[in-house]
């Protein structure tokens, strides 16, 4: 580069400007890629998304949300459970046969891997418990319904 082209800029400043431009372009490209991926890179879909765009019976999907309070029902065979996953706007009934993780409880998060049945019941092959960002000692258990609601919203945000 000639001196006239750089208009007397010190090489140090020239490098700084060039690098800043390159960095801005790079970060912009990265953010764009991440934004474009926002749906594909999601680990699970919320009940409202599943209800709005019902997947085919052969399409494996992950359903994630909160286990509705009082919805876990053990079936007579002892290994099958039925429960409802909700996100505040939609609800999906789920059936699962197998061993559930220790942290799978009502009012907490869950991710169910499986497929949507023709009868509208989601048949899960695998259950994962999802924790929220709150760390609370056992003594502070017994939160009010209002607190649980707020926590549901915080987890699903």
């Amino acid at each position: 580069m000639t001196d006239s082209a750089t208009r007397g800029l010190k090489p140090k400043h020239q490098r700084l400007v060039l690098l800043s431009l390159a960095l801005v372009a790079l970060i912009g490209a990265g953010l764009l890629a991440a934004w474009a991926l926002r749906n594909q890179a999601s680990y699970f879909y919320l009940p409202s998304e599943i209800v709005a765009h019902a997947p085919g019976p052969d399409q494996g999907v992950r359903l994630g949300g909160m286990v509705e309070m009082g919805s876990i029902k053990e079936q007579p065979d002892g290994t099958t459970i039925h429960f409802v996953v909700e996100d505040g706007t939609a609800k999906v009934p789920v059936s699962f046969t197998g061993i559930v993780p220790a942290l799978f409880v009502e009012g907490s998060g869950v991710v169910a891997d499986g497929r949507m049945g023709a009868d509208g019941v989601f048949v899960a092959e695998e259950l994962l418990a999802k924790h929220d960002e709150n760390y609370v000692p056992k003594e502070l258990e017994g939160m009010s319904q209002e607190q649980v609601r707020r926590q549901v919203e915080a987890t699903l945000e």
Partner: peptide, 23 residues
Amino acid sequence: VWWNSLHQPASITMGNSAIDPVY
């Protein structure tokens, strides 16, 4: 924040904490 993930969201953000002081 961008994607639904199994990992929970940040517990400690600028000036805010969802972690009980005992932890």
